[in-house]
C-alpha cells in the first residue's frame, strides 16, 4: 500500500492537501472490503492501543471508531467524560498527560470546544485524531461523505454540492467545505442568515458560494447535504420556531426537485424528521444516510491505520 500521509496527528481537513485527502480515501477503499467479510478482522494494528476520549456524547462516532480499531485488531478503550475535566479539578492538559502516560498509540478526541485536539497534540506523545471539536472540524465525517459521493457519482471534481442549515455552528459543514473545494467541487451554502453569515464568502479561497435561499443552493445540485438543526438555536433567537424552520428551510420533495434528476441526499445524523428533512426525502432511494454510516467504519480504519504509523 502506498503511504499517502506522513502526519502524526489527524486534526482537520483544513491543513491537508488534495493529494493527502485522496490518499486517505484510497486507503479507506482498501479497508472497505474487510467490513463485509464473514470474519471482520485483520491483524494490521495488533498490539496497538487506541483510546477513544469523548468529552461529548456520541453514539455513532464512538461506536464507529471502536469498531474500526477492533476490526484492525487494535486494543480500544472508551473513556466518556460526561462532566468536564475542570469540575474534577483537573486541567485539560493534565487529563491528556495522564492518558498519554499509559502509552497509547493513538487518542481519538471529541470535545465541545474547538481546538482541543490541537491543544492536546502539543503535549501528547500519542497521535491525536479529531473526532469532532466544537464548531471547528469533524474530518472523518467529511471523509465518509466524500467516500459516499465518490461511490455514487464516481468523482468529486466538478460536482455542485449544496450544504443547507446551521453552517455557523457546524463542524461537519466546515470539514466538508474544505474537503470538497480542495477536490474541485463547487459548494453552495444556504440557510437562515443568522446561521449562514455573509462572512462565509471568504471562508476558503474559491469554490464556495453563499446563496440567498435554500432553493438557490439546491437548484441543479448533484449532492444535497442537510445539517441537523438544534433546538437550542431557537432559544438564542437564531430562528423563531421549528415549524417556521421546516417550512422555509427544510428539505422537502418539492425543493429536492430543483436539484439534478440523479441528485443524492446526505445527512450527518441524527436526523430531526419533519424539521430539516421531510421523512419522504429521508426514506427515499436518493437518501444515502445509511451508506454514510457504513463507510464511516472504513474511513476510521484508514485514519487509525495512518495515525498509528501505517502511513
Amino acid at each position: 500500500m502506498e503511504k499517502p500521509f506522513s502526519r502524526r496527528d489527524f486534526l482537520g481537513i483544513r491543513d491537508l492537501s488534495a493529494e493527502e485527502i485522496i490518499g486517505v480515501l484510497n486507503t479507506a477503499e482498501n479497508f472497505r472490503e474487510i467490513n463485509s467479510r464473514e470474519i471482520k478482522k485483520v491483524p494490521t494494528l495488533r498490539g496497538k492501543t487506541v483510546i477513544n476520549l469523548f468529552f461529548e456524547n456520541s453514539t455513532r462516532t464512538r461506536t464507529s471508531f471502536e469498531l474500526a480499531a477492533k476490526r484492525l485488531s487494535a486494543d480500544a478503550v472508551n473513556i466518556s467524560v460526561s462532566s468536564s475535566s475542570v469540575t474534577k479539578g483537573e486541567t485539560l492538559v493534565d487529563t491528556a498527560l495522564n492518558l498519554d502516560a499509559m502509552q497509547p498509540d493513538c487518542i481519538v478526541v471529541r470535545h465541545s470546544s474547538a481546538g482541543v485536539p490541537h491543544q492536546l497534540a502539543k503535549v501528547s506523545k500519542a497521535a491525536i485524531v479529531n473526532a469532532g471539536d466544537g464548531a471547528n472540524e469533524h474530518p472523518t465525517q467529511a471523509l465518509l461523505d466524500a467516500m459516499t459521493i465518490r461511490e455514487h457519482k464516481g468523482k468529486i471534481e466538478g460536482l455542485e454540492v449544496a450544504i443547507l442549515g446551521d453552517i455557523l455552528h457546524s463542524r461537519v459543514a466546515r470539514s466538508n467545505i474544505h474537503l470538497l473545494t480542495k477536490l474541485g467541487a463547487t459548494v453552495r451554502i444556504a440557510g437562515p442568515k443568522t446561521l449562514v453569515p455573509e462572512n462565509f464568502r471568504h471562508f476558503v479561497g474559491s469554490g464556495l458560494a453563499v446563496c440567498p435561499h435554500v432553493s438557490d443552493a439546491i437548484e441543479g445540485a448533484d449532492v444535497v447535504m442537510i445539517l441537523r438543526i438544534q433546538k437550542e438555536r431557537m432559544d438564542s433567537a437564531y430562528f423563531p420556531t421549528l415549524r417556521e424552520y421546516s417550512i422555509h428551510y427544510g428539505l422537502t420533495n418539492e425543493r429536492l426537485d430543483l436539484a439534478k434528476q440523479d441528485a443524492i441526499v446526505l445527512h450527518p445524523g441524527p436526523m430531526n424528521r419533519g424539521i430539516e428533512i421531510a421523512s419522504e426525502v429521508a426514506d427515499s432511494s436518493r437518501s444515502l444516510i445509511l451508506d454514510q454510516v457504513k463507510y464511516g467504519v472504513a474511513v476510521r480504519m484508514a485514519v487509525l491505520y495512518l495515525a498509528t504509523g501505517g502511513g
Binding site: 481546538g115 471547528n136 471568504h202
Partner: peptide, 8 residues
Amino acid sequence: RVSLLLGL
C-alpha cells in the same frame, strides 16, 4: 473570517 475558520 478567522473565527469562522476556527469554529470559535
